[in-house]
Simulated assay, not measured.
Amino acid sequence: MIEIITSDALAPLTHGFFTRKGGASSGIFQGLNCGPGSTDLSEAVAINRARVAAAMDVDPDNLQTVHQVHSPDVVTLTAPLDIRPRADAMVTATRGIALGILTADCQPVLFADPVAGVIGAAHAGWRGVKDGVLEATLDAMTALGASRAGITAVIGPCISQAAYEVGPEFVESFIDDDPDHARFFAGGAGDRALFDLPAYGLARLRAAGVGHAEWTRHCTYSDPDRFFSYRRTTHLAEADYGRLISVIRL
């Protein structure tokens, strides 16, 4: 059975943060791997994405994803695209288009202004958030008629602070941007620190003026039965990893 995590804050819009349960993939990709960029069998990925589309009640061709490159770039969709553009966020005011984001520790962020009829979805790893992908998504939504105060943003399953160990250079790059960013780090072993990615994402969203922002509080690293994790795969020296999908549609 496919498992879908939803947020009351995004109701009544159709949306879901899909776990890895209920898919056709096997081996290290066991479950619902929706990443065409993985080395999984393309047939299995296609089946998985079709199951997601069915759960979202859209045609598989209307389940849109982008070629994610850890950028602040946003694509505005008025119709389904035949190719995946290089970007890390999408927005639309067109009914029937489902916006999908692939993750395996990074933040999937789903946005909605139900009154204006505008939605968005962003792939928000540390680099993308630092470079402004969340604010760029909000700008693209307001260009379609949304208001920042009317937008709800929900961060789905991602890596939690307890599992996100980083080096001193990483910390310094954030402190250089703003000394207040020290609050997103806790002490780790030796010279290492633990980075709170979802807290950083929430802070950026709230500072940008969204009406409501929350995290579902699911950690991808610590729950291998439900979530894929790039960092866990790296620690286990596995050859590749699956990609979770998070989707929203009008």
Score class of each variant (00 low, 15 high):
I5M: 07
T6F: 11
A9T: 15
P12G: 15
P12M: 09
P12S: 07
H15F: 14
G16V: 01
F17N: 03
F17Q: 05
F18D: 01
F18G: 04
A24M: 01
S26Y: 02
A44W: 00
V45Y: 05
V45A: 13
I47C: 09
A54C: 00
A54D: 14
P60C: 06
V74K: 00
D82L: 12
A89M: 02
A93Y: 01
T103M: 02
T103W: 04
F111Y: 14
P114D: 10
P114L: 11
V118T: 01
W126N: 14
G128E: 08
K130D: 06
K130R: 15
L134Q: 03
E135L: 07
T137I: 01
T142Y: 03
T142H: 05
A143R: 07
A149S: 13
I151N: 00
I151Q: 01
A153K: 07
I159Y: 06
V166E: 05
F170T: 05
S173H: 15
D177G: 14
P179D: 00
D180E: 12
H181V: 00
F185K: 01
G190H: 05
A193C: 11
D196N: 11
L197V: 06
A203P: 10
A207Y: 10
G209C: 13
V210D: 02
W215M: 10
W215N: 02
C219S: 07
Y221I: 05
Y221C: 01
S222R: 06
D223M: 05
R231N: 06
D240N: 00
Y241Q: 00
R243M: 08
V247I: 04
R249G: 10
